[in-house]
Design a protein around this nucleic acid. Structure first.
Lengths: 201, 201
DNA sequence: AAAAATTATCGACCGTAGTCAGATTTTTTT
DNA sequence: AAAAAAATCTGACTACGGTCGATAATTTTT
């Protein structure tokens, strides 16, 4: 049952998110003050803190919404018959696109999810676990198809890909890699991971 | 020639760094205000901004000093005859130790170096290039010894190791890996990188 | 439906990062 | 060595993120 109170809460939360999306996109995150945001959402400054703990929390919520959406899509569309390399590239490139589409958002999001504050740990781990739930079945299938070694821990395999993805994003923020080169670079480094660094006998 | 002015500048900068080291260690980064810091260094608040652009800049300078020191040490000691895997583990574990010894410092440092603000790019790239200068010769020697594929770009190899290092640090901040497990985990994932993810024929 | 209890809203208030115009010190010119 | 120029220092000031006690809206109890 939906009490009057609960309905209003949802509306207010939505109003904040909406205002945030608009203002952050228009003026950037740092240039948007909480007070402005509150005004745009038609509420008082303090009220925001009943919905979000910090300013970055708002950004976070936004990013997570987007990514969750993305993941759902991927699960549906993920074609389990194409090579695992392609699948991984597709998945991470989708995320990459999301990150790079708004530089500011992306940077903050990556900073906070890759090296999270202790206070954010719980939420962070939850999010990561969802990720694993998405990836593990794909990797398992690949193992069965003989594309991946079976003696490796799935967590380590995911980690391997994820680490290389981090590298890509880092390189992009450093300007070492342009947006257009990204897919090629990711594919290169992923297949390098598949084949290994030491020479084949 | 050292004018009176230049000498004083150096002294002041040193005084700020000294005060920062003490206060940050005692009370933590966030709990130390710029005003306190200035007082401890025996100067006015505004003066600090003649030496550092932001508060985090001070932290940065400190971390970079430490790391630079570390790298110098490593170059000297780096034993080029032990397997490249061990060398990489040793190098990254030294850095890891530095990062983890002070959680707060480490987090900020990693956040800012991995996903740098555009304003910090120049300094960041410089620092990274020094890194490459340290690693490339080691990798080249390993290639010659037949431990590493010769058809791979050195940058991609370094990147591969670095990406996996990022993963380790990220996992540590997330609490997925304890400090004591770190070396084992890094070795595991590095040798996984050496051998590759796909089954040997 | 009135009273009591609970929950949400608000904006004045606090502490701090960073700015800036004017004072001070050092260097250069005459 | 006096005057002019340049570099440096400074603390009052601004703007912002976040808090909190008072107030209003909603739900529950009587």
């Amino acid at each position: 049952m939906e009490s009057r109170r609960e309905k209003k809460k949802k509306e207010t939360r939505q109003a904040i998110m909406q205002a945030a999306m608009t203002l952050f996109s228009e003026k950037g995150f740092d240039q948007t003050s909480i007070e402005e945001l509150a005004k745009a959402a038609g509420i008082g400054k303090g009220t925001i803190y009943g919905y979000f703990e910090t300013k970055t929390d708002i950004l976070h919520a936004f990013c997570e919404d987007e990514l969750e959406c993305l993941h759902k899509e991927l699960t549906t569309y993920a074609d389990r018959e194409i090579p695992i390399l392609q699948q991984m590239v597709k998945i991470y490139m989708t995320e990459f696109k999301q990150i790079t589409e708004n530089r500011e958002f992306g940077r903050l999001f990556m900073q906070q999810t890759t090296f999270p504050r202790d206070a954010d740990l719980k939420r962070h781990l939850e999010h990561e676990n969802n990720y694993f739930k998405l990836l593990f079945p794909l990797l398992e299938k690949a193992q069965e198809r003989g594309e991946l070694r079976k003696d490796l821990d799935l967590l380590y395999i995911t980690g391997h890909f994820y680490g290389l993805y981090l590298l890509l994003v880092s390189a992009w923020f450093s300007g070492r890699i342009q947006t257009e080169e990204a897919e090629y670079a990711l594919e290169a480094v992923f297949s390098q991971a598949m084949e290994g660094l030491q020479p084949r006998l």
